[in-house]
Amino acid sequence: MRLPLIVLASALAVTGCAPDTGSPARAAERFHAALSAGQTQAACAMLAPESAEELPDPGQSCADALRELRFGPGGRVTEVSVWGEDAQVRLAGDTLFLHRFGDGWRIRAAGCTPVRDLPYDCEVED
C-alpha cells in the first residue's frame, strides 16, 4: 500500500517543480518600473510588510528611504526560481527575493549582490 503513495509523492514533488514563474517575475519588473518612474510610494506598497518596516531610518518614510538608495535600472528578467512560497528573480541589473503572501507576490529583498558562501547582501531586506 505504501509503494503507490511513495510513487504519488514523488510524482507530486516532481510536477511541483514546474511552478508559475511569471507572477514573481512580473512583480519584480513592476517594482523596478515604479522605482525608475520615481514612484517610490508605489514601490513601497509592493514590499513585504517586514521589509517596508525595516527599510527607513527613524523619522524617515519608506518612500524617502527607497529614493535615497538610488536603484539602477532593473532591466530584463534573466532567471526565475520558485520553490514553495518563495522566489528569486534575477534581472539584468538586480537580484530580488520574493514571498507569496495572501494578496500575491511581494518583494522581501532587492538591490542584492552575491557574497561567496553567504546570504546575498541586499539594500532592502527584512
Partner: peptide
C-alpha cells in the same frame, strides 16, 4: 526530490541561491 524543494525554499528565505 522533496528535500531539494524544501531546502531551496529555506535557502531563498535566507537570501541564498
Amino acid at each position: 526530490v522533496a528535500g531539494q524543494a524544501a531546502y531551496n525554499s529555506e535557502r531563498l528565505i535566507d537570501l541564498r541561491d
